[in-house]
Structure formats: structure tokens, C-alpha cells
């Protein structure tokens, strides 16, 4: 199974190469990619140089052009496609059918992956992307159990890729409007979930209060682990009491599921976190590289090594084990 690692900057890409990535995904510094954060991402020259660097070490680079193009302004997305191809990207990760169509028609030799943002969560949907645009791989949404992943992988004529670590979207990806509702900006159209410009933090008697737009998202007691101020992981006051209605603030960690994911015949394992620093990239990539070596050699796989890097300082296997069913 290929280890697919994030990089938000050229330095992070270099570190991911050194830490044992098989492939690295990254994006341009504009709204064509779903991590369009201030100071993050690659300009054209950095992309070209970074891909060349990765290739020198036998590491592939997958360029994420995975937001949805706006009617009347598709040129930005088409230019990103053309430039990524020119930079010799090994694959493009795309969510929008219009952009996929452009890739298939204009660059028929370019390898195409279906982004998690496309929310292709069943064989019919995946078959559409494979037959219409020649997609070679689909990144599965984080709403499927491992048996469901295995069933899909058996049925489709392309590779499957799944997330194994990092920030966890609990909604069907590419369809979530919570950030848009609260701030007017979304990962789907603007490349930002809960944009930094709409976030406020305030300390009050040792407690940390986080706000997104006009909404108070959480109040963390003194010493309590904090989390990103996203609506899906907010703490809500209801008639039943106060708590996390949708999802606890926790990161995905599928270390313990690696043997089952291998049995499910997934082709690639993805680490989330292009917005994270080099310390995160290096540590997480090395940890999973060692885990995959242990899996290959039939040794026990160390677990829970990455809690300190996780949102809320806790982890979950998410939908991979649907314990609520």
C-alpha cells in the first residue's frame, strides 16, 4: 500500500520525502485547492522545483485541484490543470466533473484521481468517474466502514485510497455547507473550512472560548485539550444538556486498522494535514512508514503514538468501525 503524505509548503514536501512518503499531495496557492490558507501552498516555480526534487528520490507528487470551479470563472481551474501537467505532476486530484472533463479532453495521458471532495461513496458513482473521465483512483470519503471499503474496492475498476490519519470530516465531503453557513466561505468553493479570518479566540479566567463568525463554538476549561472551531465539532447546549452533537473533536488514527485495510485491498493510505507544520509531517509520516514496515514483516504495530499531535489530543477510528450500528 502506498503512503500518501501531505505538504503545504516546499519545506514540508522535502521533509515528507525524507520521512518515507511514497507520494505527496499538494496544491497551488489559490482557491483551486481545498487548503487555501494564508501563507500556505505552492506557486508555479515552487511546484516545478518540488516535483523535480521528489522525482529525484523516486517519490510521486499528486496535485490537488479539488475545489469546485465557479461558473464564469473556470479559467483559474483550467490553468491550474495545465500548469500541474507542465510541472510533471504524477496525478491530478480533482472533484469537479467540469474540471475532470477538461483534464480528460486536454491531457488524456494525465493520470486522474477522484478527490474525496467528490464524495464518491458507492460503486455506481465511482464507475461514472472511471468510464467518463478515465479516473485511475478514487479517494473514498471518511463515511465508510472497512467492510464497505472492501466491498467497493472489489466492485470497481480503479484503485481506492483511504485516509488513515488526521483531521476528520464527519459530513459527506464536498457536500458540507456548515462553514459556508457560518462564514460565507467553504472548502468546496473557496478552499477553506472555518477560515482563519472568521475565527476568534478569547481567554476568560483560564477558559478558552472559540468563535466562528457569529457563533460561539466551544468553551474549553482550564487545561482541557482544545480543538479547531468547526461547527461539526462544536459543543452545543440543548434540552438534553451540553455536549458534542455531531462529533467529538478528535483526529482519525487508523493505525490499528492497517491489517484490515490491507485485506480490503486498498491501494493507498492517505495522511491528512497540508495545513500542519513540518514537525507534524515528519513525525506522522515516519510513524506510518514504520507501521507499514512492521505490517509487512508481521510484527505488532505500535498504536496511540500520535495523540499529542491530534485535535483535542484524542483519536478515533471514525466510521471504519461503525460501533453505533
Amino acid at each position: 500500500m502506498e503512503l500518501i503524505c501531505p505538504a503545504g509548503t516546499p519545506a514540508a514536501l522535502h521533509d515528507a520525502v525524507g520521512a518515507g512518503a511514497d507520494a505527496i499531495y499538494c496544491g497551488f496557492n489559490d482557491e483551486t485547492n481545498a487548503r487555501n490558507f494564508p501563507g500556505l501552498n505552492f506557486n508555479r516555480e515552487e511546484m516545478r522545483d518540488s516535483i523535480a526534487h521528489a522525482h529525484r528520490y523516486g517519490v510521486k507528487v499528486l496535485v490537488a485541484i479539488n475545489t469546485f470551479a465557479r461558473a464564469g470563472n473556470v479559467d483559474l481551474w483550467r490553468r491550474a490543470v495545465d500548469d500541474a501537467v507542465e510541472c510533471e505532476a504524477d496525478a491530478l486530484i480533482v472533484a469537479d466533473v467540469g474540471v475532470m472533463d477538461y483534464v480528460a479532453r486536454t491531457h488524456p495521458q494525465q493520470r486522474l484521481h477522484v478527490s474525496v471532495q467528490a464524495a464518491a461513496a458507492n460503486p455506481d458513482s465511482i464507475r461514472f468517474y472511471v468510464e467518463s473521465f478515465g479516473a485511475k483512483r478514487v479517494v473514498l470519503p471518511r463515511v465508510l466502514s472497512v467492510p464497505e471499503i472492501a466491498a467497493i474496492t472489489r466492485e470497481v475498476d480503479c484503485e481506492t485510497e483511504v485516509f488513515i490519519f488526521g483531521g476528520l470530516c464527519v459530513m459527506e465531503e464536498g457536500r458540507c455547507s456548515l462553514s459556508s453557513y457560518a462564514t460565507g466561505k467553504s472548502p468546496n468553493m473557496d478552499g477553506v473550512c472555518s477560515p482563519a479570518g472568521a475565527i476568534q479566540y478569547r481567554e476568560e479566567n483560564g477558559a478558552l472560548i472559540s468563535r466562528l463568525g457569529n457563533f460561539t463554538i466551544n468553551k474549553f476549561a482550564k487545561g482541557e485539550a482544545a480543538a479547531y472551531p468547526t461547527l461539526c465539532k462544536g459543543r452545543y447546549q440543548t434540552d438534553e444538556g451540553c455536549g458534542y452533537l455531531f462529533e467529538d473533536p478528535a483526529s482519525l488514527d487508523a493505525t490499528t486498522m492497517l491489517p484490515e485495510l490491507r485485506k480490503a485491498k486498498v491501494s493507498a493510505l492517505k495522511i491528512e494535514g497540508r495545513q500542519r507544520g513540518r514537525a507534524y509531517i515528519e513525525r506522522v509520516v515516519k510513524t506510518f512508514r514504520h507501521a507499514l514496515i512492521a505490517l509487512e514483516e508481521g510484527r505488532p504495530i505500535p498504536a496511540d503514538e500520535l495523540n499529542g499531535l491530534s485535535e483535542g489530543q484524542s483519536t478515533t477510528v471514525g466510521a471504519y468501525k461503525k460501533t453505533w450500528r
Partner: peptide, 10 residues
């Protein structure tokens, strides 16, 4: 150190 992790841990 990762800045987000330092924020999570307060």
C-alpha cells in the same frame, strides 16, 4: 514543534 499541536495542548 507543530503549532497546532501546541494549541491543542494549550
Amino acid at each position: 514543534y507543530d503549532g497546532d499541536a501546541l494549541f491543542f495542548s494549550r
